[in-house]
């Protein structure tokens, strides 16, 4: 009995070493409405059965930092344990009147705008507490936006490994080549979270990212 326990203990240790199991915190960053929470939800749902947060077509739905601890991902015999950190979309301007165009009342829009400004400040603060980052951009939008460049520049300055994900490749206007041209030094993956398209390549890239942590 004792021998079996000791044997199991050592085999567990060796298995962990040889599987190169890694635990790290993975942040999801990007502009509003790019699909950060949708992607984080997809990962959580696939591997824990639960979601991390609500999604909406109205920008700045995520206004607080959201976490999911111990998300274990097993892919092609490899294993990763992640702490997922879903952050509010980073923006340089927030106008409550934009929310009113989506049908929200004035007071609700003003509250949402106030919370969204705090969310942006918090998201930037959290850059100091992530081990690696998935930058999610909308593949139908111009990748040269200053928000994208500022996020990637900050990650580079902090020496944080980055994977760039171009979401919404199911849409006709999506252009992954343009994202690759904008960020030639980075690994870029095009996916559609909505239709689960190209998730295999995303997981491959995620494991490559883990090696850089």
């Amino acid at each position: 009995m004792v021998i079996r326990i000791i044997k199991n203990f050592f085999s567990r240790i060796f298995l962990d070493i040889f599987r190169r199991r890694k635990d790290f915190s993975l942040g999801f960053y990007g502009p509003p409405n790019a699909g950060k929470t949708s992607l984080a939800n997809k990962l959580c749902k696939d591997w824990t059965g639960e979601e991390i947060g609500k999604v909406s077509k109205i920008p700045h739905e995520t206004r607080n930092i959201q976490f999911k601890e111990k998300v274990e991902i097993e892919y092609k015999g490899k294993k990763l344990t992640l702490k997922l950190i879903d952050t509010p979309g980073i923006a340089t301007k927030i106008d409550y009147e934009d929310f009113m165009k989506h049908g929200l009342g004035k007071k609700e829009s003003q509250t949402r705008a106030k919370e969204a400004t705090h969310g942006v400040i918090d998201a930037i603060k959290w850059l100091d507490d992530v081990d690696a980052v998935v930058v999610v951009v909308d593949a139908t939008q111009n990748p040269y936006s200053q928000v994208n460049i500022t996020i990637v520049g900050n990650l580079l300055a902090r020496k944080i490994p980055v994977l760039i994900v171009g979401n919404k490749i199911d849409l006709r206007k999506a252009d992954i080549k343009r994202i690759e041209a904008a960020f030639p030094e980075y690994d870029v993956v095009g996916i559609s979270v909505k239709f689960g398209k190209n998730m295999e390549e995303f997981y491959e890239s995620l494991f490559s990212l883990a090696k850089k942590v």
């Binding site: 340089t92 927030i94 850059l127 520049g153 900050n154």
Partner: peptide, 15 residues
């Protein structure tokens, strides 16, 4: 880059 993010934070604090 870090100044740019500082500018965004300061901007958001003023909105």
């Amino acid at each position: 880059a870090i100044e740019e993010s500082g500018l965004i934070q300061a901007t958001m604090a003023l909105v």
